[in-house]
Design a protein around this nucleic acid. Sequence first.
DNA 1: GATGAATGAGTATTCATTCAT
DNA 2: TATGAATGAATACTCATTCAT
Lengths: 237, 237, 237, 237
Amino acid sequence: MKATRSAAAPPEEGHTASSPAPAKSRRTAGKRNAVATRQRILEAAMAEFAEHGFSGSRIDRICAAADVNVGMIYHYFGNKNDLYLAALESSYKIIRDREQSLDVNDADPLLALRALIELTFDFLSTDPHFVRLIMNENLMMGRTAQRSATIPHMTRPLLDSLRTILKRGQKEKVFQKNIDAENLYVSILGLCFIHVSNRHTLSSMFQRDFAEPDWLAQRRLIVVDVVTSYITDKAGK
Amino acid sequence: MKATRSAAAPPEEGHTASSPAPAKSRRTAGKRNAVATRQRILEAAMAEFAEHGFSGSRIDRICAAADVNVGMIYHYFGNKNDLYLAALESSYKIIRDREQSLDVNDADPLLALRALIELTFDFLSTDPHFVRLIMNENLMMGRTAQRSATIPHMTRPLLDSLRTILKRGQKEKVFQKNIDAENLYVSILGLCFIHVSNRHTLSSMFQRDFAEPDWLAQRRLIVVDVVTSYITDKAGK
Amino acid sequence: MKATRSAAAPPEEGHTASSPAPAKSRRTAGKRNAVATRQRILEAAMAEFAEHGFSGSRIDRICAAADVNVGMIYHYFGNKNDLYLAALESSYKIIRDREQSLDVNDADPLLALRALIELTFDFLSTDPHFVRLIMNENLMMGRTAQRSATIPHMTRPLLDSLRTILKRGQKEKVFQKNIDAENLYVSILGLCFIHVSNRHTLSSMFQRDFAEPDWLAQRRLIVVDVVTSYITDKAGK
Amino acid sequence: MKATRSAAAPPEEGHTASSPAPAKSRRTAGKRNAVATRQRILEAAMAEFAEHGFSGSRIDRICAAADVNVGMIYHYFGNKNDLYLAALESSYKIIRDREQSLDVNDADPLLALRALIELTFDFLSTDPHFVRLIMNENLMMGRTAQRSATIPHMTRPLLDSLRTILKRGQKEKVFQKNIDAENLYVSILGLCFIHVSNRHTLSSMFQRDFAEPDWLAQRRLIVVDVVTSYITDKAGK
DNA sequence: GATGAATGAGTATTCATTCAT
DNA sequence: TATGAATGAATACTCATTCAT
C-alpha cells in the first residue's frame, strides 16, 4: 500500500443521498447490482460517520441502513477504516464540485467573491453532515485525510478560483494588494464553519438556537460584510 | 437527575493541566489526600477527553495518567459521563477566567478589542486541548454542555465585557453603530478557531503545517485585521 | 418494551436438559446450526440460573457449558435479563406440559387427583432445578415472570384440569362441596415444594437429609394423605 | 475455626427492627455505644439480606441504613459471610422464641395445634423478611446454616412442643396414631410458607394478589382445615 | 455475489475488603 | 472507636472481523 491512496473506485454517479435504484424489490430480485450495492453502502456510511464519528459509528447500523449483509462491506471496502476513507473523499468531492460550478471570470470580482462566500455558508449551514465529518476527521488528527490522494488534488481548482478572483480585484483596485488566497479561504471557512461546528456549545453559552432561519439569514449578511470589509479596506496594511 | 447541574465540587486551585504535586512519591508516602486525588483525576480526564473524544477515551488510561485505581474515578465522579461533564466545565472555566483578566475599561476600545482577540487566538492556538474538547462536545450534540449549569453562567461576564468595549467604541465614533456583541464573538471565535479545529484537514488540502510559529504569527495579525476592518468600516451597513 | 412478552422464539424440540446433539464434534464439524446453538445456550442457562440464581449466574459459565462464544448469547437473547426470561418460560413449559399428559376424564376423580399430586411431587423432588428457579424468581419479586405473556397462558389448562376433577368428585359425592381449585393447587404445591425448597435449612434444623429416597417415598404417601383427607372430609366446613 | 459456630456474641435485647437508641443525636455524640452500633448493623443486615439475598446485598447499603462506617462492619463482624450468619441466626431466634410463648400443656390438644398453625401462618405472612431470608439460604445450599451451632439447638423446643401435643391428642383418641412430629411440622410449614415464598410467581400464574387480607384470612382457615382434617382422620391409615 | 453464525479482544462499572489516620 | 480513601478482581456487554455455506 502506498503512502497515499484513494478509495473511490467505481464512478459514483450522483453524490446526493438519494438511491435511484428500485429500493424495495431488491430483496426478491435474486441477482443484485454490484455498483448499486456499493453506492448504497457508501451513502449509508457517509451518513453514519457524519452522525457518530468514526469510532462511534457501527458497521451494523451501516448494514441496516444500506440493507446489505455485513460481509458486503468487507467485500467492497475491506474494513471500517477504508470505508471511512471512501466516505470522507466522497464528501469532499461534493463541496469541491459545487465550488467549481461558480463562474469566476465573468462577474465583477466582488460579486464573484460574495458568491463563493455565500455558497460556502449555505453548503455548510444547510446540511451539517459535512461539517461533522470534517470535525471528526480532525479529532482523529487527520490520519485518514493524509492517506487520501484525491483530497489535495481536489483543492487545486478552489485555490485557482480564489487567486483568479483576487488578481482581478487587485487589478481593478477594489481589493487590497496583499491578500493571500490560502489565508482568505481559511478566514471564509472559519466564519462559515463556526456556528455549525459549535452550534451546540454556543447554544449552551448564549441560550439561543444557532440554526434558526432568521439568525442564519442575518449571520450570512454579516459574514459577507466581514470578509468584504477586510478585503476592500483602503487602509489595508 | 435534574435539568442542569454542575460537576465541579471542591475548589480546584490552579486550573492548568500541570500537576504541581510530587506525583510519583505519593504512592510510597502513604498520604491520603482526597482533594489532590480528585484534582489529578480531573486533569488526566481533561487531557484524555481532549485527546480522544468522549467515546474514544479510556477510563483505564485516565487511571494510569492520574496514578489512581479505577474505583477512585467512580468514587469521586460517579461515571464516565459525569467525569466528562466535570472536565468540560473545568476547561471552560480556564478560558473564561483568563478573559476576565483583561481590563476593558481603561484602555482605548480598539486596543481592548484587539487584546481580547489576541488572547482568544493565543489561548486556542497554544494548546489545542480546549478546541478538541469543544469539537467533541459538539459532535455529541452538546448533550453534556446542556446539563451544565455553570457554562451559561460563565458566559455572562464575557458578553458584558464585549458590550462595554462596543459601547465605548461606538460612543467615540471609531466603531460601527450596529455591531451585535454575540455575533461579534462568534466571528472572533470562528477566525481564531478554524486553523486549530481544522488543522489536519487543512493541512491535507493545502499541504502545509498550520501550527508552524511563523504562519501563526502572520495569521494572528490577519485575524485582528479582519475583525478591526469590519468593526471600524465607515461604510458600515 | 411492551407490558408482557415472550422470549421463546424457535420451537424447542424436547424440553429436557439433555442435549441430544453430538456436542463436542460441533467445533470441528464446521456446521453452523443456529437452532441447535440457541437451544444449547438455553439449556445451559436454565441450569446456571437454577444453580446460582439470577445475579449469581455468570454469562461466562453459561458460555462454557453451551460451548459458545459470549457474543452468541447477546446475538440470540439480547441480554442476561432476556435470557433469564427465556429460561424461566422454558422451565414452566416443562411442568405444564407434563401436567397435561394426565387424563382427567377417564379415571376415578380421587385417582386423578392422586395422580396429579404424585406427578407434582415427583417432578419437584426429582430435579430441584425448577424449584430453585422459581424461588429465585420470587426473591426478585417476580419481576421477570410479570413480563412473560406465556406463563399465565400456560396456567389455564392446569386450572381447567383441577376444576374438572373437582366437579366430578363433588358430583359423585366423594369430595367436599366447597373446594376452590386455586386454593387446592396452592395447598398441593406447598406440600410438594417445601422439602425441596427448604431442604437445606430443614436439614440444619432436624439434622436429617430430606432428599433421602426412603424419606421421600414416605413423604409422598403423607402428602397424598393430607390432601385426600381434607378433600374427602365428611365434616367439610 | 470449628465445624459449626455462632456469630451471636453480645446478647441482643429486643429482636424487633426498632432501634431504641437516641438515633439522631448519635453523630454529634462523639463517643459511641459499641453494643448499640453492633445492634444497628445487625438489624440493617437482617433487612438487607432478606431484601436482596446474600450476593445481592451491598455492604454500603447496610452501612447507610445503620449509619456507620464501612470499617465498623469488619470490626464487629469480620466479613460479609459472618455478618450474614449473624443475621440468619437472629432471624431464626425470633420465630423460635415466639413459638415457645405458646402453652402446649394446658389447652385442648386440637386447640394447641391450631394455635401453633395460626402462629406460624401469621408470622410468615405478616412479614415476608423471614421467608425471603430462608429462601435465599436454601438457594445457597444452606452453607451458612450448616455453620451455625445455634440453629439445630433452637429447633429442639419446637419439636418437643409438637410431640407433647401429638401425644396428648393420641391419648385422647382425637388424633391419628401414626403421626410423625417432624413430618407434621414440614406439612404445616409447607402450607404456611408457599403463598409467601411463591407469592409473585403464583400472582403471575393466577393473576391475583396473594397478599390481599381477604384472601389471607380465607387461606388461614383452609390451612388449619387441611391439617386438622388429616390429623383427625378416622380412616387414618 | 450474498448470508449470518461465530469469534475474541476489549471496556465501563461494581464491590468486598484493607489500611493509614 | 471511628473514618473514608484506596485497591484489585470480577462481570456484563460491545463490536469489528472472519468464514462456512
